[in-house]
Amino acid sequence: MATRQTQGLARLMRAPAIILLFVWMIVPLCMTLYYSFLNYNLLNPGMTSWAGWFNYQYFYTDPAFFEAIRNTLVLVLGVLLITVVGGIAIAMLIDKPIWGQGVVRILVISPFFVMPPVAALIWKNMIMHPSYGVLADVARFLGTSPVDWFAQYPLTSIILIVAWQWLPFATLILLTSLQSLDTEQMEAAEMDGAPAYARFLYLVLPHMARAITVVILIQTIFLLGIYAEILVTTNGGPGTASTNLTFLIYRAARLNFDIGGAAAGGIIAVVLANLIAIFLMRAVGKNLD
């Protein structure tokens, strides 16, 4: 099929996508790098000057920066833990011979299609509100005092909301993987008297390993950029208790108009994402063929 003519045509067909993505990746990134070395505030654009490493130093000595890094990691790891463990459990439950499996699947997958601001507002108001929320009603019913979630446990509250959004995704992918498990092998193991935990540990879990890797990989990409959930619930507070790196940079750029500082933060975010990506891309690369 690969005559010279078709090869030329193929190149022509690929070119627009490659050029677009290349420009989209390189141009803004170079601009961010350039701005990160400037003293540049939108409130005072006339005073723009070369800053050297000042913006990076400023970030590095800001205690909010380390808290943001810590919050970012806690958020990602917390959500991953809940969604992977919960996803495995729920996928195995749905995979059992149950009535109405189709409907159960639809109910479980639904939160994934709820846009982040809506998910956050539903939880903030109807579920976690300290006096009118459902959880407050439950607490009163049980005779304990309601919890003021976003004031007392801001980061945990956000982890719960985001985990609710991503649990369906993990469940669906793990269920898909589970359904391709060889049932004969399972039956053989059962006949040989392997107990349930051994079947899970030595047959089910290894079979799902690849799907679990994919879930972790894809969720990490999205979880590093969590933004709207924080904006509409805690707005990063109290203080900076629920500010992640994305939110910190947003604050520098949009609320403090500090273009140089936000750009330096952006570069730091790229470095962090790349460190994680290098390690994760290897896993996906192996799964390609």
């Binding site: 141009v27 803004p28 990134l29 601009m31 961010t32 701005y35 590093l224 950029g225 933004y227 790196l245 994305t246 940079i249 947003y250 750029a253 273009i259 936000a262 750009a263 933060g265 952006g266 570069i267 975010a269 790229v270 994402a273």
Partner: peptide, 8 residues
């Protein structure tokens, strides 16, 4: 990350 190119 989206936020890396927010400024430009």
């Amino acid at each position: 990350p989206a936020v890396a190119v927010l400024v430009p």
